[in-house]
Computed example of a mutant assay.
Amino acid sequence: MAAFLLVVLGCFWGLLQGAENLGYSWHWTRVPRYLYKITDEGWQAGPLLQGLWLTLEITVVSLLLSLVIGLLTALMRLSRSPMAKGIAWVYLEAIRNTPLLIQIFIIYFVFAPILDLGRFSSAVLALSLFEGAYASEIIRAGILAIPLGQWEASASLGLKPPQIYRFIILPQAIRQMIPPLTSQGISLIKDSALVSTIAIYDLTMQGQQIVAETFLTFEIWFTVAAIYLLVTTLLSLLVRYLESLFSVQ
């Protein structure tokens, strides 16, 4: 952690020196108004915190949907149906071998008008499909990590495959899947910055808007980066806690 902080401070110092060489004039005192404001009605969130809230909204909804998509895809890959395996393979190859930005554009400009989807729904769908492809591999690996004896013992009790997954396999696999899935959630937060390209006023888009209006380029982008860093660091600490918790158990 100390080394990480030193690297961050070193980068920050280098950027400050570069801005100073460019003759940039700093105006940090103008930044707080874009984070919060105090009015007669009390404390209110500024544009950046409003954007952060929308970013977290998109992240949470996309994460839940990606888990559902990932579970279904993993089960399709593990099934005996050639058609199910084929559909899952095509989906995984198409998603993992194309950039997320292109996927967002295709969903928003091609499929959204057909399906009557708004910007928020298009962004959630694109992120869910993208992250679901990676979540499916995590879930599949967790399922395959369960010893074969568990499957055989479950079958000998007369349980059907859906019951085996529900009552025996998934409860055990979840312990191994939670830490990497939480890490995937961290990646989702960072990937969500791309939804600003379709005019969704998330944290990144709010930052762009403020920079265009005020020309506080360095101050605003440093602040936006710090907010992302704070959120992802907190989630990283959660991942470490979960890993230590499950390793003890």
Rank of each mutant, 00 (worst) to 15 (best):
P113N: 14
D116F: 14
I143P: 00
E152P: 11
G207F: 02
L101W: 13
F167E: 09
R119S: 13
D202N: 13
P179G: 04
A199P: 07
I102A: 11
P171D: 09
Y108F: 15
G142M: 04
L100P: 01
L203E: 06
S154H: 15
M205N: 08
R166E: 06
M76P: 03
M83C: 07
I106Y: 08
Y108I: 08
V110D: 08
V90I: 15
A199S: 12
R175V: 10
V195F: 03
G158I: 06
R77T: 06
A88W: 00
Q184N: 07
I189Q: 02
G185T: 04
T98D: 08
A133R: 01
F111E: 11
I198C: 08
L159C: 10
A199Y: 10
A133E: 02
G185W: 02
I139Q: 00
F167G: 07
A199C: 11
A88M: 01
G142E: 01
P171A: 10
P99Y: 02
K85P: 02
F130W: 01
W151L: 14
F167K: 12
D202E: 15
A145L: 08
I87A: 06
L127Q: 01
D116W: 13
S187D: 09
I198Q: 06
L188Y: 02
I168Y: 11
Y91S: 01
I138H: 00
I200L: 12
R119N: 12
R119C: 12
P113A: 13
L129D: 04
S121C: 10
G158F: 10
A193P: 05
Q103R: 10
A94W: 07
P147R: 13
T197H: 01
V110Y: 14
E152V: 12
A199E: 09
I87H: 05
I139N: 00
A123I: 11
I178R: 00
R96C: 06
G142F: 04
G142C: 03
I169P: 09
F120K: 14
L115N: 13
V195R: 00
Y91I: 00
I87W: 05
D116S: 15
A123P: 11
L125H: 06
I198R: 06
T204A: 02
F105C: 09
R80W: 11
R140T: 07
G142D: 03
P171K: 12
I106R: 07
I169F: 11
F111L: 15
D202R: 10
G207D: 04
I102Q: 10
F120T: 12
L100M: 08
A141V: 04
F130S: 00
L127K: 01
A123G: 15
I143R: 03
S122A: 14
I168T: 14
Y165L: 12
P99C: 07
I146P: 12
P171E: 08
A126N: 08
F109L: 13
I114N: 11
P179S: 04
G142K: 03
I87R: 05
A173L: 09
L101M: 15
L188V: 07
A141K: 03
I174C: 05
K160C: 05
I104A: 08
A112V: 15
A112T: 14
E152D: 14
A135Q: 04
L181F: 01
Q206F: 05
G86T: 04
R77L: 04
A153T: 15
I189F: 05
E152Q: 15
G149Q: 13
E93D: 10
G132M: 01
